[in-house]
Computed example of a mutant assay.
Amino acid sequence: MRSVLVTGPGTTEVREVPRPECGDDDVLIAVKACGICGSDAMYTAVGGIPPRQGATPLGHEPAGEVVAVGRNVTGIGEGDHVVVNPMAAIDGIIGSGGAQGALSDLIVIREARAGVHLRVIPPHVPWEVAALNEPMAVARHAVNRTSPKPGDTAVVFGAGPIGLGAVISLKLAGAAHVVAVDLVPNRLEKALAVGADAVINSAEEDVAARLAELHGTARAGLVSGAKPGTDIYLDAAGAPAVLETALASAKHGATLGIVAVHKRPASVDFGRLLTTELTIVLSMGYPSEIFEVTDDLIANWEKYALIVSDTVPFGRVREALTLAATPGAAEKVVVTF
């Protein structure tokens, strides 16, 4: 079968590799769609992930159709449409250093358990939308880490796929008013379409001043002064300016969540922040959220479909990887089979 491998720094190849065998406890899946994540570009740039450096299978956002089921597996049948938990694979995280990558014709889920390793979805959900399940779980975990309460106000920096997913999850958690901040008008339009209450173009507007207009003002800390009344700041952009804006704007008792990958160290003046009693939380992966998002994805697939900007057939997968890695060229690229 075909599989995309990182074979050196900045180099990917589509290679013929052995077809995986389906044992008595396993499920074999024909991949129908796989999203491309920003981490795929990072893995490619450095030449893989040790200890598999130089031969790293790519792809960790799969959706597919079950083509074989081991005799000991229950709750899964041939022909079922499924989404997958890449982090639960016993042979390593799929597409992130494990033995398999989902930018392949087939993947096998060893010792498969329904609800743990994969979940059945109805066939009316388009494959490219189903492939959003994994990144939407990343967004859901980021939101969960900020502990939103009904009535909270929030701002999400970065209206890419994770930021858009965070907007959706914040509204589902009961946030009264959610603002999306970005530089790209098309992304801001999508943020409104998926449920943001307002948007801010940070290239044209003063973010703190606009937040104060939208969320009112509140005590800055134990000293005098006023800041925007925003309860939750979520960084899904990874730009130094985002941290600077959030830290300078945060009111007393606010929460700052960081899900974006910052590629350079950030300097934080904790002395200046001390009186704000700001809570800072970091987010990675989806310890329990991988199938928490699935019901909403199924019920509102048309809304989630707005997140996908490009679908590219597997025959042009290297073009898809280049497109996804080019800043400003695309928002969410999904490879279809």
Rank of each mutant, 00 (worst) to 15 (best):
G64I: 06
L321Q: 06
I290F: 02
P327Y: 01
A68M: 11
W127E: 04
V82W: 07
D295W: 06
Y233F: 08
V84P: 01
S3D: 04
G328K: 02
M87T: 15
P62G: 02
C22N: 07
R145E: 12
D295F: 14
T74Q: 15
A196S: 00
E134K: 05
D25E: 05
V268K: 03
I290S: 11
L243T: 02
L274N: 03
P62E: 03
I90E: 07
N85R: 15
L183I: 11
L256C: 04
G315Y: 10
A175R: 06
L172W: 12
T230H: 04
T245E: 09
A137M: 01
A203W: 13
V199Q: 00
I200Y: 08
V261W: 11
E111H: 08
G163V: 03
R219S: 09
V178P: 00
N201C: 12
V199I: 09
G48H: 07
T230L: 10
T153M: 11
K32Q: 04
H177Y: 13
A180T: 05
A246D: 01
K332R: 02
I94W: 14
G165V: 04
A266Y: 09
G95I: 06
R52P: 05
G47I: 12
K190W: 08
D91F: 11
A68Y: 00
K32N: 04
V67H: 06
H262I: 13
V143M: 10
L243S: 03
E16K: 03
V179Y: 02
T326L: 03
L164M: 03
E189K: 00
L243G: 11
D296A: 10
G64S: 01
P51M: 15
D24Y: 15
M87G: 12
M136K: 11
I90H: 09
P313S: 03
R264E: 13
D182N: 01
E78N: 11
L321R: 09
V83R: 07
G238E: 01
V261K: 10
I93E: 13
T326F: 11
N133A: 15
S96Y: 15
E61R: 09
I280T: 06
L211T: 03
K227R: 07
G92F: 11
A266K: 15
T7K: 05
V116E: 11
A175L: 08
D231P: 02
D295C: 07
E244K: 07
L188K: 12
I168A: 02
L214P: 02
L243F: 04
V317I: 00
I36V: 12
V194D: 01
E213I: 00
I298K: 05
E21Q: 09
I121W: 07
V69R: 00
Q100A: 05
P313T: 08
A173F: 04
G75A: 06
A30S: 00
L28F: 14
D296Q: 03
L5D: 12
A139H: 06
L188A: 06
G8E: 02
I168P: 10
P50F: 13
S96Q: 13
S288F: 13
G54K: 10
P185H: 09
N144M: 14
V335L: 06
